[in-house]
Simulated assay, not measured.
Amino acid sequence: MRAVIVETPGDVDALTIGEIDTPTPGAGEILVRTVASGVNRADVLQRQGHYPPPPGVTDTIGLEASGVIEEVGEGVTRWKKGDEVVALLAGGGYAEFFCVPEGQAIAPPPGIDLVSAAGVLEVAATVVSNVRVGCLKAGQVFLVHGGAGGIGTFATQYTKALGAIVAATAGSQAKLEHCREFGADFAFDYHEDWVDALKEATGGADMILDIIGAKYLEQNVKALKKGGHLVVIGLQGGVKGTLNLGLLLNKGASVAATSLRFRPAEEKAAICRAVEDEVWPMLADGRIRLSPETRIPFDDVRRAHEQLVGGDNVGKIVLVH
């Protein structure tokens, strides 16, 4: 089958299209012919050699994809050949076919085509699971960094639907306006003093969802309210930062870091069920709108990665097979 191959980690030139063996579904797994693949920051990190897959998982990049079931493995009960699914993957999405445990596949959102659906599940699963880690409640203040990206756009709408007061950071006027358009009560330019601006507007955050990591660690802790929760899900700003434990202690706050990719299959299946039960109805009734979407042909995967890291991208990028 055709797949994206990275023989030597590096820049976008490391991405090539080649032939690899088609996977065979094991017990409890399904084989899916790919229609589209979501493009994520984690894919870029893996291409660069900074985010290897878990042991036993294919080296092929791709954490989410959609398609039509080609074959079901022994013991599969929910699915049959010909069913349409979206899937949360530990790897393998940038390929003509992928295998996935049946619990990590769910029906696409009602009324949304398979191409657009390919870019929804990983974002939704990440946000839903981590909002639970952050113990967010209605009426509390939620801050998301990267508010104009796929995670940020979804997180803004989802937490708004939960009754939170939502703030976001972004790096341009166009992106700040995007944040407001998708429901942010406050949008702050991260080139400016967003910590003081957040405190002046809301008193601080009860939960921060952070894709930056080390670069923002000290500022994030300063921005938290007493009893607040910082949940780090990305390391775009590095892996080693300075943490003022005294300030954290005085606030009775917490810092957590999570990775969806390395969670056990049973945990991922439960998160997928939660997305299907909770998020899909929100998409159906309009409480959550799809992010702006850029569709790029599979063979132009290099362009997809260039656009994602270029700084001007808004919303979600999807590779169309």
Rank of each mutant, 00 (worst) to 15 (best):
G56W: 01
T24A: 06
A27K: 15
V35A: 14
I20G: 02
D21F: 06
P53E: 06
P54D: 07
P54W: 06
R47N: 13
Y51G: 09
V35F: 03
N40S: 03
G56S: 03
V35Y: 01
R47M: 15
G26P: 09
P53N: 10
I20M: 12
Q46L: 04
D21N: 14
Q46I: 02
Q46E: 07
A27G: 14
V44C: 00
D43F: 00
H50K: 15
G49T: 13
N40K: 01
Q46M: 05
P25I: 05
T22P: 09
G26E: 14
T34W: 00
L45D: 11
A27F: 13
G49W: 09
V35L: 05
R41D: 02
D43P: 03
P52Y: 07
H50M: 15
G38V: 03
P55N: 11
P53R: 10
H50Y: 15
I20A: 11
S37Q: 08
V39I: 13
P52C: 10
A27Q: 14
G49N: 11
D21G: 12
T24L: 05
R41F: 14
P54T: 04
E29F: 02
A36F: 01
I20F: 05
G28E: 09
G26T: 12
Y51W: 13
T24Q: 07
T24F: 02
R47D: 12
A36E: 02
D43I: 00
P52N: 10
R33I: 01
T22I: 14
L31C: 08
Y51H: 10
V44G: 01
T24V: 14
A36Y: 02
Q48R: 15
G49L: 12
V39A: 06
L45T: 08
P54M: 08
L31T: 06
P54N: 08
D21K: 12
L45H: 14
L31E: 04
Q48D: 07
P53G: 10
R33F: 03
Q46P: 03
I30F: 10
S37E: 07
T34V: 15
I20H: 04
R47P: 12
L31W: 04
R33N: 08
V44E: 00
V39R: 01
G56P: 00
N40R: 00
L45K: 10
V39P: 01
V44W: 04
D21C: 05
S37V: 15
P25Y: 04
G49D: 10
G26H: 10
P53C: 09
T22S: 14
Q46H: 03
Q48A: 14
V44P: 00
D21E: 15
L45F: 15
A27L: 13
I30T: 12
V32H: 00
R47T: 11
A27C: 12
P53L: 09
P25D: 06
V44T: 08
G28A: 11
L31K: 02
D43K: 00
T24D: 05
G28R: 05
T24R: 06
R47W: 11
P25C: 08
H50P: 07
E29G: 04
A42C: 07
G28F: 07
T24M: 03
R41C: 05
V39G: 03
P25V: 06
P55H: 12
P54A: 11
P54H: 06
V39F: 04
N40M: 00
G26S: 14
Q48I: 06
S37W: 05
T34D: 06
L45Q: 14
P52M: 08
T24E: 13
Q46D: 04
P53T: 12
T22N: 09
G26N: 10
N40P: 00
Q46Y: 01
